[in-house]
């Protein structure tokens, strides 16, 4: 019994990481109806940036965040204004195919730069540290990851609903023309939204890299996990992505407990079940 409880708790904590994958996707879809196929590859790119930073400067991955987060945010702004803004419109093909092309480019640049060998970020003592809670041993790193995920979503929620920037996001999302009349330059607003999304991607990438090994090919899988968390939680709901991530994480750890080869499949099946029963997710956004 305690073993199963353990698996469920591990799954909940894993869900925090998936929520971080999902939050950026949810944010940019909410603001500009853009689905970024390269999202997962950007997470892996951030992990490699973390690797280079920790190796070059000989610092802990958490300190690397100070460099990787702003660099990824800047990259997001440039990417959005330089390329992605030109793809937005009524036709869904251009953004989809352009981000798909971007995904292939990022993968192969990473492959060329870092080879296909799996790498890992050295987190030091925190990787093995654990705490004992009523017979269940929990890793400090997964706990911290979950805490960071909650904090990141809380901050995004605050920005979205309590700040002038967030009002701008919502206004542009509602009606681009009228938002322009208010003096909002939508090209800039979209750039800022992508910068914010990639800042979250940077955090997700570093935490992923400390938790497991990574290689240039695993981006697609991370995109899928993030996407599943978004759909399970309900489109346009940031806290929903946390719930979606947790459901996905728990399904995976329970699946792994049944059979190690069943881990990822169990997550996909949980997603398909939600899609069959509640196509709009468990907590779709209610317009107020």
């Amino acid at each position: 019994m305690i073993e199963w409880t353990g698996a469920i708790v591990q799954g909940i904590l894993l869900g925090g990481l998936y929520a971080l994958f999902a939050a950026g996707l949810s944010l940019i879809f909410g603001v500009m109806r853009l689905v970024n196929i390269a999202h997962g590859d950007l997470i892996i790119l951030a992990a490699y940036m973390g690797l280079t930073t920790t190796v070059l400067l000989d610092v802990h991955p958490f300190l690397a965040l100070l460099i990787v987060v702003p660099v990824m945010a800047g990259l997001g702004y440039v990417l959005q204004r330089g390329i992605l803004n030109r793809t937005l419109g009524d036709d869904i093909l251009p953004p989809l195919l352009v981000t798909f092309g971007l995904s292939v480019i990022i993968q192969n640049v990473l492959l060329e730069t870092y080879t296909a060998d799996p790498r890992k970020l050295a987190g030091g003592a925190i990787e093995t540290a654990s705490v004992d809670l009523g017979g269940i041993t929990l890793g400090v790193l997964p706990l911290l990851t979950f805490g960071i995920a909650v904090a990141v979503i809380a901050v995004l929620q605050f920005i979205f609903y309590r700040t002038s920037l967030g009002r701008g996001f919502r206004a542009v999302s509602d009606n681009q023309d009228i938002a322009q009349l208010m003096g909002l330059n939508k090209a800039h607003v979209f750039g800022v939204a992508m910068a914010l999304a990639l800042a979250v991607v940077a955090i997700a990438g570093i935490l992923l890299g400390m938790r497991t090994s990574f290689d240039p090919a695993i981006g697609g899988g991370r995109l899928i996990f993030g996407f599943e968390a978004v759909i399970i939680g309900g489109l346009g709901n940031l806290w929903g992505t946390l719930v979606g991530g947790v459901i996905l994480g728990v399904a995976q750890t329970i699946g792994a407990k049944i059979d190690p080869g069943f881990q990822i499949l169990a997550g996909h099946i949980a997603f398909l079940i939600v899609l069959a029963i509640r196509p709009n997710g468990l907590f779709p956004r209610v317009e107020h």
């Binding site: 853009l34 689905v35 196929i37 869904i92 953004p95 989809l96 697609g220 899988g221 995109l223 899928i224 996407f227 599943e228 759909i231 080869g261 069943f262 990822i264 499949l265 996909h268 099946i269 997603f271 398909l272 899609l275 069959a276 196509p279």
Partner: peptide, 28 residues
């Protein structure tokens, strides 16, 4: 019947999930 519930770009990623389900199933 399942993935047609997803619109536009989300449909695209949905098809990818299905392909992954196929891959993982055949691997079993």
């Amino acid at each position: 019947a399942l993935i047609f519930r997803l619109r536009g770009a989300y449909f695209a990623i949905g098809t990818w999930v299905i392909a992954e389900v196929f891959r993982l199933s055949f691997a079993q």
